[in-house]
Design a protein around this nucleic acid. Structure first.
Lengths: 192, 192
DNA sequence: GTCTATACTGAGATAGAC
DNA sequence: GTCTATCTCAGTATAGAC
């Protein structure tokens, strides 16, 4: 058996613990125990604890950052582009074996140590606010501060992820669509 | 000058740090530094670090738990009762000098150590789900799993708190009403 | 009620055998 | 690639002077 499996298992178990306890509160001993190895063995797969959370973070954010930026630049109604993005995002996250809500919920990103990751996330948020602004300008969305809009999209995404992590998903695509619909309801102006 | 001021200041600074870094990641030295006292002086005001977070938590939850339960039992449209509750909740939280979003966001509640607080929060969530169920049954709300509804109410509340903590609120009542409106938009069936 | 000094514990990480 | 043993350091909390 290759090392890849243990590596993957570390990511899965660590993400669950990060979600439950937060990054700092989760000890490498706890992660190791969940993976069924001893604590020092973790350091064969990752140089340090930080690298574990960085990898989980990259998994969730790298492609998302590209896609949200594309969504900003494409033509067509902003509400449709946001909806499309959210469906992709949710269905991708729902398919991952890690507890992805750990990332956004977590304490890790807010500390100095993770300034680089925080910067990536900030850029992502910037694009998201841009897209929301477009929808407000075109009259598709209610008039709110784009920053509040971004906070709501992010928090509803987490809520939906947490929900899906709870109920065991059978059809990731369907639940992703429902999630995206729900998020857009909070913004979209009723067309009468 | 009485000890009350230092005590209050500890709660304020601690809440901000808990919000930024999470409970476990925030050290008593950092809290002390923010309050401008030395680390051991904290222990004159609180028996331990845990007691600080417990007090912040109680401040936010004790009355809320009572009010949400009352809202469940009153007559009238569930959407109105939920709206009323949310206005009260948001305006109360917005008025507090602490960073109240720290509590829900934080990692503290999820650890074993805080099982008692977690139980209180669970009871609160139970009432919230009950109220949402009432609104679904009466046709006021869209048909979603009440648990998802609860997650969304909670996450949007946090998002709104974080927003208000960012922009400096001049009129807590107005922003509370706007927040409650926004949260209800996500659920309320459009009446055609 | 705040300080300095310090005890104690638990965490991340390394060394080196197997 | 995993183990046992251990280093080192940071964090909570206490003791006791002022």
């Amino acid at each position: 058996m290759e090392t890849v499996d243990t590596r993957q298992e570390i990511l899965i178990q660590a993400s669950r613990l990060f979600k439950k306890l937060g990054y700092r509160a989760t000890t490498t001993r706890e992660i190791a125990k969940a993976v069924n190895i001893k604590q020092p063995s973790l350091f064969h797969h990752f140089p340090n604890k930080k690298a574990i959370v960085e990898e989980i973070f990259s998994l969730s954010l790298n492609e998302a950052a590209v896609r949200i930026e594309e969504a900003c630049r494409r033509d067509g109604p902003a509400s449709e582009r946001l909806h499309q993005y959210l469906v992709w995002d949710l269905s991708t996250l729902h398919r991952m074996p890690m507890a992805m809500s750990a990332i956004y919920t977590g304490d890790a990103l807010k500390s100095e140590e993770f300034a680089e990751l925080a910067a990536k996330l900030k850029a992502f948020y910037h694009s998201l606010e841009d897209l929301i602004s477009q929808g407000i300008d075109s009259g598709e969305f209610v008039e709110i501060d784009p920053m509040l809009g971004r906070l709501i999209v992010a928090s509803m995404t987490i809520a939906h992820l947490e929900y899906a992590e709870e109920v065991t998903v059978t059809d990731p695509d369907r639940i992703a669509r429902e999630g995206a619909d729900l998020i857009l309801r909070a913004f979209r102006r009723e067309q009468n």
